[in-house]
Simulated scan of single mutants.
Amino acid sequence: MAVSMASLSCKGLKIAPTNQPIAPLASGSVAGSGFLVPVPLKLRSISSISLKVQGTASPTAVEGGNSDTDTVPVPKVIIDQDSDPDATIVEITFGDRLGALLDTMNALKNLGLNVVKANVYLDASGKHNKFSITKASTGRKIDEPELLEAIRLTIINNMIEYHPEASSQLAMGATFGPVVPQEVDVDIATHVKVYDDGPDRSLLVVETVDRPGLLVDLVKIITDINIDVQSGEFDTEGLLAKAKFHVSYRGKPLIKPLQQVLANSLRYFLRRPSTEEESY
């Protein structure tokens, strides 16, 4: 059944499809599946930084961290569109090996973004680096999935540069590289679930193997069946991608038949031999 793609409403995402092929990630562009993202190279100042980690030195030394231990932690990158109405929250964790990530913040500024607040804190799971990010051109949070994917891949590439031991655990690293193989042989099953989440929206939860361009493609699949994406969170945990999207249809929650159509569409797109049949 042919369907048209809907624009995304409220504080949700906007998507602009193109038929141009994608080149590997380079300065001013981002790798994704079926999309080419021009990125303005602008340098902006960091408005406010609160770094609660002592003993930081040069950016390279800070980002290098401690890589001498035998156990390599799972790298995590979380893009949160729900917590702050005015900014996109990005959180990076890699055990206790991450410092202030000054070079990462500079790389984000080169995407035309402002890092308006940064915070580094420690807990039992390791060192967490949280950034509040806005678009330099508007001062508002990021709502384009292409730019959100650019942020994610920029952070992952920077992590691989300073922590090559994480390379095999990230989709842009040794496992896939910048070009995703046609058949992904990773033992991660796909799960797709849709829940009721209030009087005017539903919650879509997707877990699958990560790859470059996944965030953009998920949003395109959802909007191709005229479902609006209002907000969400995209977590990269090693080779596992976890996406949570608040979705609606004409301002209402998804009825059960539409939930099944959405789940089946995503399952078909994300299909793998190990994908569970009953994943919705």
Rank of each mutant, 00 (worst) to 15 (best):
N114T: 11
L122E: 10
P21C: 05
S45W: 07
H246A: 02
L102S: 11
P75V: 03
M172N: 14
S274F: 08
T175D: 00
T275Y: 06
K252W: 04
E146M: 06
S132R: 09
P257G: 01
P181F: 10
V184T: 01
L122H: 08
S83G: 07
H246P: 02
P21F: 01
R201G: 08
D68C: 12
P199I: 12
I79K: 02
A31E: 10
L41D: 11
I133W: 02
E237D: 13
I151W: 00
I46S: 13
I92A: 09
T69A: 01
V115N: 04
G112I: 00
D200M: 09
G238H: 05
P17A: 07
L270Q: 02
P257D: 02
K244R: 15
I225M: 07
E183K: 12
I156N: 05
N158E: 05
S29R: 13
D196H: 07
N129A: 14
H246W: 00
L215V: 09
P17H: 06
I160S: 06
S125P: 04
N157L: 08
N264T: 10
L203F: 07
I142L: 08
E237V: 13
P178D: 09
A16C: 13
K252V: 03
E63W: 00
L270M: 03
I227M: 04
L43V: 13
T275Q: 01
P253G: 00
P273A: 10
E161H: 15
A26V: 03
A6Y: 02
I46K: 12
I133K: 06
C10Q: 14
V39K: 08
L254V: 01
P164H: 05
F269R: 15
F94P: 03
F245Q: 00
S67W: 08
Q20N: 10
G28R: 04
Y280K: 13
R211H: 04
L108F: 07
A87L: 01
P59E: 02
E278R: 15
S132Q: 14
S83L: 10
L41K: 15
A57S: 15
N129T: 12
G99D: 07
A16V: 10
E63S: 03
V184R: 09
E207Y: 09
S58M: 05
A2K: 13
P85C: 05
N19I: 11
V37R: 15
N158V: 02
L214T: 00
D80R: 02
T134P: 01
V206G: 04
R140T: 10
A61G: 11
R272A: 14
F234H: 05
L98G: 06
S67R: 14
V194I: 05
N129F: 08
V186N: 01
Y162C: 02
D235R: 14
I221N: 06
I160M: 03
G173Q: 00
N158I: 04
G112A: 03
Q230D: 12
R272D: 11
N66W: 01
I222A: 07
P181M: 10
M105D: 12
L258R: 14
G139K: 00
M1Y: 06
S125K: 13
P178A: 05
K109E: 09
I188D: 01
